[in-house]
């Protein structure tokens, strides 16, 4: 597999079709919106914080397969983590996705995030993959302004 077929890993397609934690959260303690004005992708990320622990996380909105599956995978990884751990995870994800596409991935360290390795070859899609992550960080920081990838 090469090219776009490699970009759209089975895991990505599956999360796109059946996104996890895809719902609005009425008792969220923090929310933030992420939007990509270029393509109209728009997601809201909901966090329920218990102290500095993420007791629950969900997202809702509309976007492409890359942005939606990335948001979905993100929510599965964040539940039960501290806000510090969430931020560290973002740094790891961001570092991976902006790395040289030729660099081999450390699948073991990256875990589920490794499926987004194919995005590295498509610079315009990096914004899609990180959209919900940026919204999550903004929610932790309790910034209520919409986050834009532009």
């Amino acid at each position: 597999m090469s090219g776009a077929r490699a970009l759209y890993e089975q895991v990505i397609l599956e999360h796109n079709k059946s996104p996890r934690n895809f719902r609005e959260m009425e008792d969220a303690t923090r929310t933030a919106e992420g939007m990509n004005p270029l393509c109209g992708d728009q997601f809201t990320v909901y966090l329920k914080l218990d102290g500095d622990k993420i007791a629950d996380v969900s997202f809702h909105g509309a976007g492409c397969a890359i942005s939606k599956s990335s948001a979905s995978v993100m929510t599965t990884l964040l539940k039960g983590k501290t806000t510090k751990e969430a931020e560290a995870l973002f740094v790891k994800f961001h570092k991976m996705i902006t790395s040289d596409p030729e660099t081999p991935l450390d699948d073991e360290a990256l875990g589920k995030l490794a499926v987004f390795g194919g995005v590295r070859a498509y610079p315009v899609r990096i914004k899609c993959a990180t959209l919900a992550w940026h919204a999550m960080l903004a929610a932790i920081d309790a910034k209520n302004d919409p986050v834009s990838t532009e």
């Binding site: 090219g3 776009a4 759209y8 393509c39 492409c64 397969a65 890359i66 939606k68 498509y122 899609r125």
Partner: peptide, 19 residues
């Protein structure tokens, strides 16, 4: 999504606009 359509079609050498 239109962006995924555009990306997949590009693989077939087909240029369309998405947005």
């Amino acid at each position: 999504h239109p962006h995924d359509i555009g990306q997949m079609l590009d693989e077939d050498g087909i240029a369309v606009r998405a947005g």
